[in-house]
Amino acid sequence: MDTYKLILNGKTLKGETTTEAVDAATAEKVFKHYANEHGVHGHWTYDPETKTFTSTE
């Protein structure tokens, strides 16, 4: 398992979190669920070199 990072740049919520996942697709599902639960619906990007997802509203 690898550690993946999420950076949230929402209108009402900003911050970072991490998750352990078997691959990027699994981490993306976890992070999108997390963002949706916190009302963040933004544009998603992923940097495979740093294993970092960013959601920007």
Rank of each mutant, 00 (worst) to 15 (best):
M1D: 06
F53D: 00
H41Q: 12
E57A: 05
N36F: 14
D2L: 11
T19L: 14
T19V: 14
T52Y: 02
V30D: 05
E49S: 11
E20R: 13
T17F: 15
F53H: 01
D2C: 14
T56H: 07
L8A: 02
V40Y: 12
T26N: 07
E37P: 01
A25E: 12
K14Q: 13
G15C: 15
T19K: 02
G10H: 13
K29S: 10
H41E: 12
M1N: 08
K11H: 13
K51E: 01
T17D: 02
H41T: 12
T50S: 10
E37Y: 09
F31A: 01
G39S: 05
E16W: 14
Y4F: 09
E49I: 11
G39K: 07
W44E: 00
S55E: 05
E37W: 07
V30E: 09
T56G: 05
E16C: 15
P48I: 07
I7F: 06
E37C: 11
Y4N: 04
K29R: 12
D47A: 06
E28V: 04
L6N: 02
D47Q: 06
K5N: 06
A25K: 11
Y46P: 00
K29I: 12
T54N: 05
K5L: 07
T54Q: 06
E28K: 07
V40L: 08
Y4D: 04
E28Y: 15
F53P: 00
K14I: 11
E20H: 10
T26K: 05
H43I: 15
D47M: 05
K29G: 08
E20G: 04
T26R: 05
H33N: 13
T12S: 11
D2W: 10
L6V: 04
A27W: 02
A21G: 02
V30S: 06
K32D: 03
D23Q: 01
Y4G: 04
T26Q: 12
T56R: 05
V22P: 15
V40A: 05
T50A: 06
E16P: 03
V22T: 12
N9P: 02
L13V: 14
G39V: 02
V22D: 06
T19E: 03
T3A: 05
E57S: 05
T17H: 14
H38W: 11
T50K: 07
Y34T: 02
E37N: 09
T17N: 04
Y34H: 03
G39E: 05
T12I: 10
T50N: 08
T54R: 07
A35Q: 03
D23Y: 01
E16G: 07
T12D: 11
F53S: 01
E57K: 03
T26D: 10
T50E: 06
H38K: 13
Y34N: 01
T52D: 00
H41K: 13
E20V: 14
E28T: 02
E37S: 12
K32W: 08
Y34V: 05
W44T: 02
T45H: 10
E37I: 13
K51Q: 05
T54H: 07
T12A: 10
N9A: 08
A24W: 13
L13H: 14
A21L: 01
A24H: 07
D2Q: 14
T45D: 10
T56L: 06
M1Q: 08
E20Q: 14
K29F: 08
L13I: 14
T17G: 04
G15M: 15
L6R: 00
S55R: 03
G42C: 03
A21R: 02
E20M: 14
T17M: 15
A21N: 01
E57G: 05
K51H: 07
E49Q: 12
L13K: 10
T45L: 06
T52G: 00
H38S: 08
G39I: 04
T3V: 12
S55M: 15
G39H: 06
H43L: 14
D47S: 07
D2F: 13
S55V: 15
P48E: 10
A27Q: 00
H38E: 05
L6E: 04
T54S: 08
H38R: 13
T26A: 14
L13P: 03
K32N: 05
H33L: 14
A24Q: 09
E49C: 11
E49R: 10
K51W: 03
G42K: 02
A35P: 01
T3S: 06
E57P: 05
M1V: 11
H43V: 15
E28I: 07
T54Y: 13
F31R: 01
K29E: 10
T50G: 04
G15N: 10
S55W: 13
G15L: 15
K51R: 12
D23R: 01
T3F: 07
A24D: 04
T12M: 12
K32S: 05
H33S: 13
H33K: 15
D2G: 08
E49A: 13
T17P: 01
Y46K: 00
T12R: 10
K32P: 01
T3N: 06
G10L: 07
T3P: 03
K5V: 10
V22G: 09
E49Y: 10
P48V: 08
T56F: 08
T18I: 07
K14A: 08
F31D: 01
G10F: 14
W44C: 03
D23W: 01
K11E: 10
T45C: 08
L6T: 02
G42D: 03
H33C: 10
E37K: 11
L8C: 09
H41R: 12
M1F: 12
K5I: 12
T54C: 08
H41N: 13
A24I: 08
K11Q: 12
A27R: 00
T26M: 11
K5Y: 15
A25F: 09
N9V: 14
T12V: 11
A21Q: 05
T18K: 07
S55A: 15
V40Q: 04
V40K: 02
E20C: 14
Y4S: 04
K14H: 10
H38D: 02
K11F: 13
E49H: 11
A24K: 12
T56S: 09
A24P: 10
K5E: 04
S55I: 15
K32H: 09
L8E: 02
D47Y: 06
T54E: 07
T18H: 09
L8Q: 01
E28G: 05
K5C: 09
F53C: 00
P48N: 07
H41G: 09
A27L: 01
T3R: 09
T18W: 14
L8D: 01
F31S: 01
V22F: 11
H43Q: 14
I7Y: 05
H43M: 13
V22W: 12
V30A: 09
Y46G: 00
K51L: 10
H43D: 15
F53L: 01
T18M: 08
N9D: 11
H33I: 14
H43T: 14
H43S: 13
T3C: 14
L8G: 02
V40D: 04
H33Q: 15
W44R: 00
K29P: 01
E28S: 06
A24T: 05
V22C: 11
E28L: 15
K29T: 09
M1W: 13
K5R: 13
H38M: 15
N36C: 13
A24M: 11
H33R: 14
Y46V: 00
E37F: 10
N36H: 14
Y46Q: 00
G39D: 07
V40F: 15
I7Q: 04
W44S: 01
L6M: 04
A24N: 03
P48R: 07
T52N: 01
D23G: 03
E57D: 07
K11T: 12
T3I: 13
K5F: 14
G42T: 04
G15R: 14
F31W: 00
K51F: 07
A21H: 01
F31Q: 00
H38Y: 10
K5T: 14
K14C: 14
T52I: 07
E37D: 09
D23S: 07
H33T: 13
K51D: 01
T45P: 00
T19C: 15
K29C: 10
L6F: 08
D23V: 02
H33M: 13
A21S: 06
T17Q: 08
E28C: 15
M1H: 09
A27V: 01
G10M: 07
K5P: 04
L6D: 04
T12W: 14
V30L: 11
N36Y: 14
K29H: 11
V30I: 15
Y4W: 04
